[in-house]
C-alpha cells in the first residue's frame, strides 16, 4: 500500500509542470556527469580491456555501442507508447511533453544501431547490408520513429501534436511486437544469413560487464536528453504562466 501511495504521489507531482521543472533542475547537474562517466567507463572498458572474441576477433567490440543503441531505441519507443496511453486515458499534459522529448534521441539511437550493425556486418558477412532479422526490425523501428517525428512536425498546435504522436506510438508499440515475429518468420522462410551478429553463445562475464555498463550509460544519456528537451518544451508551453515569469 505504501508503495502504491508513493507512486501515485510521484505521478501527480511529476505531472505538474512546475514541480517537474524544479525536480529536473535539481537532478540534472548530477545526472549528466554520471551519465557521461558511465558511458565512458563502459566504452573504454569494452574497447581496450575486454578480451577478443575467438570467432569474430576485434570487430565484435562494436557490440558495446550497437546493443545499447538498439536497446535504447526499443525502450524509447515503448516509453512513448506508455506515455501515449497515459495521455489517451488521463489526458496528462506531461505525457505529451515526454513523447515529443523522447522521439529525437530514440530515432538517433535507431540510426546508430543500424549504422554500427552495417559496419559490423562488413567483416562478419563480407557485405555492409544483409536483410538479417534484427537489422530489418531495427530499420522498421527507425521508420516508426520517423513517422512519429513527421507527425509532430506537421501539426502546428503543440498539444495536438503530442496527443497525435502518442496515439500513433501506442499503435506502433503493438505493431513492433508483431513486426518482430513476422520478420523472424520471414527470415526462416527465405533462409537468410546464418551468422548472427549478436547472440548465439552466452557471453563471458568479462565481456558482459562492460556491455551492461555502457548500456546503463546510454540509457542515462537518453534520460538527460529527454529531460533537457522536456524542459524546453515545458517552458515554451507555460511561458505565460506565473511560475515561468517568476523564473526568468
Amino acid at each position: 500500500m505504501m508503495v502504491w501511495k508513493t507512486l501515485t504521489r510521484w505521478y501527480h507531482q511529476l505531472g505538474s509542470p512546475r514541480y517537474f521543472y524544479r525536480f529536473s533542475e535539481v537532478l540534472l547537474p548530477w545526472l549528466w556527469p554520471i551519465a557521461l562517466l558511465t558511458t565512458a567507463v563502459g566504452l573504454v572498458w569494452g574497447l581496450a580491456f575486454a578480451p577478443e572474441d575467438y570467432q569474430q576477433g576485434n570487430s565484435y567490440r562494436i557490440i558495446f555501442i550497437h546493443v545499447p543503441a538498439a536497446g535504447g531505441a526499443l525502450l524509447g519507443y515503448v516509453a512513448m507508447g506508455v506515455a501515449g496511453l497515459v495521455n489517451l486515458v488521463w489526458r496528462m499534459k506531461m505525457a505529451e511533453v515526454m513523447i515529443k522529448a523522447i522521439a529525437p534521441f530514440g530515432a538517433v539511437l535507431a540510426a546508430i544501431a543500424l549504422i554500427t550493425g552495417a559496419i559490423w556486418g562488413k567483416p562478419t558477412w563480407g557485405t555492409y547490408w544483409v536483410w538479417d532479422a534484427r537489422l530489418t526490425s531495427m530499420l522498421i523501428m527507425l521508420f516508426l520513429y520517423l513517422g512519429v517525428m513527421a507527425l509532430i512536425n506537421a501539426i502546428p498546435d503543440p498539444r495536438q501534436a503530442g496527443r497525435a504522436a502518442g496515439l500513433l506510438s501506442v499503435v506502433g508499440v503493438i505493431n513492433v511486437v508483431i513486426v518482430k515475429y513476422s520478420v523472424e518468420w520471414w527470415q526462416s522462410l527465405h533462409q537468410g544469413s546464418t551468422i548472427k551478429l549478436t547472440g548465439g553463445s552466452t557471453m563471458p562475464p568479462e565481456m558482459l560487464t562492460p556491455l551492461l555498463i555502457s548500456m546503463l550509460g546510454i540509457y542515462l544519456l537518453f534520460a538527460v536528453s529527454v529531460l533537457w528537451r522536456a524542459r524546453a518544451e515545458l517552458l515554451w508551453r507555460e511561458r505565460k504562466s506565473a511560475w515561468v515569469k517568476e523564473l526568468v
Partner: peptide, 27 residues
C-alpha cells in the same frame, strides 16, 4: 484520422502507415 485536418495529407499518411503495414505484407 490523425492527418485529416492537415494540408500535407498524402505523403505524411504514407510515412505514418507504411511501417505499420509490414506484418501484413510479410505474412
Amino acid at each position: 484520422a490523425l492527418t485529416v485536418s492537415l494540408r500535407s495529407g498524402g505523403i505524411l499518411l504514407s510515412l505514418l502507415v507504411l511501417p505499420l503495414y509490414v506484418p501484413v505484407l510479410v505474412f
